[in-house]
């Protein structure tokens, strides 16, 4: 039964791929219309709130720069290299975890990684690096090398009842195809690393890349990996590296 189910699903995937591309492909004009919506992105309001919290809890850019040991003028470029190994935390961390540590230092109860306020703060902090090309260095040290390798493993490991991996849908053989009316993008060319956090129209809210990974895992029936865990940070490292060199543009706007 299990085998036949898998075969059926595989066939279904192929079936819907071909059908959909003929019937439901959006036109370039349609896509342009959605791109225009970026100019009035509702997530700008989340970012405004995030900026206020960032000021209050982390002493703003000065506080973040001080914690990271970089000058304020170099901060945007430094942010464009996240997730990165943070010596003080002894781990490859996201900006959200850095902000949690700063909040702790400042005597505030750290916001939960999965909270809307933290998403807003993360989006604000990353937007400080808007227009800066992603400069993640996966060979910077052994920690980053390990994270990259782990991220690749997470991306490629087939899990769950359907035996799916991220790679099942995000690989060069099916990219450009259309699955359930949606094009399967190349995550690198689509600048996943530089356009998350983003406003998700389906959820009517600001979401982060790791939150999106979770949604994807959930829908593909994979056990969901916690936000901020070594595996999740590693996955973000791996996927962010695909968009290396692309300019950061926060907040993005996603279906």
């Amino acid at each position: 039964m299990k085998l036949s189910t898998k075969t059926a699903l595989l066939l279904t995937l192929v079936c819907s791929l071909s059908f959909a591309s003929e019937q439901f492909a959006m036109s370039d004009a349609d896509r342009a219309m959605y791109a225009e919506m970026l100019e009035n992105n509702p997530a700008e309001m989340d970012i405004e709130v995030g900026g206020e919290l960032f000021e209050e809890y982390c002493n703003g850019e000065a506080g973040l720069a001080k914690f990271l040991g970089v000058s304020e003028s170099k901060l945007p470029e430094y942010i464009a290299g996240f997730p990165r190994y943070v010596e003080k935390l002894k781990m490859v961390a996201g900006l959200d975890q850095v902000m949690q540590a700063i909040m702790k230092e400042n005597g505030h109860e750290p916001l939960k990684l999965k909270s809307g306020d933290m998403f807003g703060m993360l989006a604000y902090a990353k937007s400080l690096a808007n227009d800066v090309p992603i400069n993640i260095d996966v060979n910077a040290n052994k920690h980053m090398k390990e994270a990259y390798a782990l991220g690749k493993e997470v991306f490629e490991t087939k899990r769950g009842g359907r035996g799916l991996a991220c790679l099942s849908c995000h690989n060069s053989a099916v990219e450009g195809g259309i699955l359930r009316t949606q094009p399967l993008p190349n995550l690198g060319k689509n600048n996943a690393g530089g356009t998350w956090p983003a406003y998700r129209m389906t959820k009517s809210s600001l979401r982060t890349l790791q939150r999106r990974f979770q949604g994807c895992m959930n829908n593909a029936l994979l056990a969901v990996i916690p936000i901020g865990s070594p595996e999740m940070n590693a996955l973000e490292v791996y996927v962010t590296d695909m968009s290396k060199g692309s300019a950061i543009a926060i907040p993005g706007l996603k279906r």
């Binding site: 439901f24 492909a25 959006m26 036109s27 004009a29 349609d30 219309m33 959605y34 225009e36 919506m37 009316t181 949606q182 129209m201 389906t202 009517s204 279906r255």
Partner: peptide, 14 residues
Amino acid sequence: LKVPEIAENGAVVP
């Protein structure tokens, strides 16, 4: 009148 021919998402149609 500018609307998409195909909506990415029925909940948010520009």
